[in-house]
Amino acid sequence: MGLGESEPKRIPRLPRRALDPMRRSDFHYDLPPDLIAQRPLAERAGARMLMLEEPAFAPRDRMFADLPRLLRPNDLLVFNNTRVMRARLYGRKETGGQVEILVERLLEPDEALAHVRASKSPKPGSRIDLAAGIGLRVMLREGALYRLRALGATFAEIMSTQGHIPLPPYIQRPDEFADEARYQTLYARREGAVAAPTAGLHFDAAMLQRLDDLGVGRAEVTLHVGAGTFQPVRVDDLDRHEMHAEWLDVDAEACARIETARRRGGRIVAVGTTSVRSLETAAADGQLKPYRGDSRLFIRPGYRFRVVDAMVTNFHLPESTLLMLVAAFVGYQPMMNAYRHAVAERYRFFSYGDAMFLARQGRD
């Protein structure tokens, strides 16, 4: 649908009664497919940026290059330093059928949990051949995942030689050489993700230097993004949604930097929803402290944020938990109005798309 052909459907409004539960369908919006970015821009920092902040939360069109003007000395940016694995593998079953594997989590050097796509589900004990002398043994099924054992090499070696960058399902093309660098943040260093923390893709060396010169601090956390981040919410009753688990690490150094920024009057600005979930998980009992382990934190309207004051983020899929998170951050109606504005103004959506800058509703 072109911009002038017809009006997008009306965004649903917040239920009238405060006690009415929100439904998955409340987070639907219509997105023309041609607005889904299929490739990155020539320059990392060249994206547009939609800004929402108090008091009105009316959308304002900016450029990502304007970010230093929105920050001030003593603010602290919190980055997710996860690194995307070459987690997509292609092989064949012993019967000759084609198999696509997406490694979700490494358990041991030779064991991993993975999604496996094939015409027929592989049986425990069967083998998947990847290359001469290299393959995978199917150990058992654990829910939607399979436990696999590497044969002839470690998983790290297999992914290094046979793996592909796991571009998201809405990017309708095979991975290319350029994706090796562009689907990775400049500061990525702890390998373990199957998807990039995409808000961080906008930061280039020049932008980081500008922020350093301004006196904006930096801290790092780790959340290894799993394939579940792309899974739609399948139940309309949000109380019944089972959140996927992702491993994260918020260390003592990050906590100390946040405390220092707070004492100096700075804001905590999360780069991406993964940084938000990391910090809010670590403060789940009311006080921020180091945390390492899995999180199933589901942030939706009504959630009380404990750490994050502002965030940089990209645009998110309709009816997704990430759209629900950002709606909780600035309010349901302002966020859905902002998405309608972004569609009308033809922003670029999702992983290789444009950015948003959000200042939290009702922050202290």
Rank of each mutant, 00 (worst) to 15 (best):
P15K: 04
A56Y: 11
E220F: 15
V250G: 00
A256Q: 13
F298E: 11
V116T: 09
M51C: 14
V78E: 07
L130R: 00
L89P: 01
G4N: 14
R39C: 08
A338P: 03
L323P: 02
E104C: 05
A206S: 14
I258R: 03
R17A: 15
L76W: 00
P166T: 10
S119G: 10
A227C: 08
P197C: 08
G152K: 10
D110E: 11
T229M: 03
D34N: 15
M311H: 06
N337W: 10
A283C: 11
G353F: 04
M139R: 12
G265L: 09
R24G: 06
I268S: 00
R69D: 13
N314L: 06
D26W: 12
W247D: 06
T198M: 07
A181Q: 14
R267W: 14
Y347C: 04
L14Y: 14
F79K: 01
L52K: 09
Y332N: 03
A118S: 14
R234L: 13
L52P: 04
T321C: 08
V250T: 07
A344P: 00
R210H: 09
L288F: 05
L167M: 06
R86K: 13
L145I: 05
R127E: 12
A327K: 00
T185M: 07
Q162D: 10
A256K: 09
P21V: 11
L107W: 03
F27M: 08
E53H: 14
V103Q: 01
R16F: 14
H115Q: 10
A328I: 00
L14T: 15
G293P: 13
L279F: 08
T274Y: 01
P174A: 10
P122I: 06
R60W: 05
Q98L: 13
L71Y: 02
D179C: 10
F203H: 05
R277E: 01
R304T: 15
A359F: 09
M356P: 00
G163H: 03
P318T: 07
L208S: 07
G266D: 00
Y170D: 10
L297V: 14
H224E: 05
L113I: 02
G353R: 01
L322G: 02
L279Q: 05
T82L: 08
A219F: 03
E5Y: 11
G293W: 04
D26G: 08
R257D: 05
L50Y: 05
Q287V: 13
P169S: 09
S121I: 01
L19W: 12
L67C: 10
L70K: 12
P40I: 09
I158G: 04
I101Y: 01
L223H: 10
Q231P: 03
A328Y: 03
L248C: 08
E176P: 00
I134E: 12
T154P: 01
V250A: 04
P169D: 07
A193Q: 00
R39T: 15
R117H: 12
R83M: 13
A282T: 04
A58G: 13
R190K: 15
L238Q: 01
G302M: 11
P301Y: 06
A219D: 05
P169L: 08
E157G: 03
T313N: 06
R300V: 00
D251V: 09
H316A: 06
V99A: 02
Y90A: 06
E246T: 07
